[in-house]
């Protein structure tokens, strides 16, 4: 049996950038898992509180941008008792070194986790070449 460790609180990371967003408010870096197999690169990003229509995925000149817009869910009449995490937009950019088939990028969003599937272009897929005896 695999022992599961206890989860620790991870402070949400605020984006530090030299330019400012036009709308004030905190912007956070989503935690991501990125892995690849032979055919595709798969990216999982935690964006809790974002609704599906608030998500933006953009790939331009090898830079993938993930954004998540959040609508305030508290109504104005609530007063704070204990505040441990900040609420704000999500923003993160990645440089992709491998060629990606732009037109067949797939994405889905479930339970606050964004999954982006980036298929590699055919020439980037490794091909096994068998050498036959002559």
């Amino acid at each position: 049996m695999v022992e599961t460790k206890e989860l620790q609180v991870k402070e949400k990371q605020e984006v530090s950038s030299s330019t400012e967003h036009t709308r004030p408010g905190p912007v956070f870096t989503p935690s991501v898992d990125i892995y690849e197999n032979d055919r595709e690169i798969i990216m999982l990003a935690d964006m809790p509180g974002v609704s599906t229509d608030g998500i933006g995925i953009d790939l331009k000149e090898g830079i993938l941008t993930l954004t998540g817009d959040i609508k305030p869910w508290e109504d104005g009449k609530e007063s704070n008792v204990l505040i441990e995490f900040g609420i704000g937009k999500y923003y993160r950019q990645f440089t992709l070194s491998e060629a990606i088939q732009q037109d067949s990028i797939e994405a889905n969003f479930n339970d606050g986790v964004l999954k982006v599937i980036l298929p590699k272009v055919a020439k980037a897929v490794p091909r096994k070449i068998t050498v036959s005896n002559g």
């Binding site: 206890e6 989860l7 620790q8 609180v9 009449k77 007063s79 704070n80 204990l82 441990e84 995490f85």
Partner: peptide
């Protein structure tokens, strides 16, 4: 974990 926000009306 998890971090909590508690509010009230």
């Amino acid at each position: 974990f998890p971090a909590l926000n508690i509010t009230e009306n």
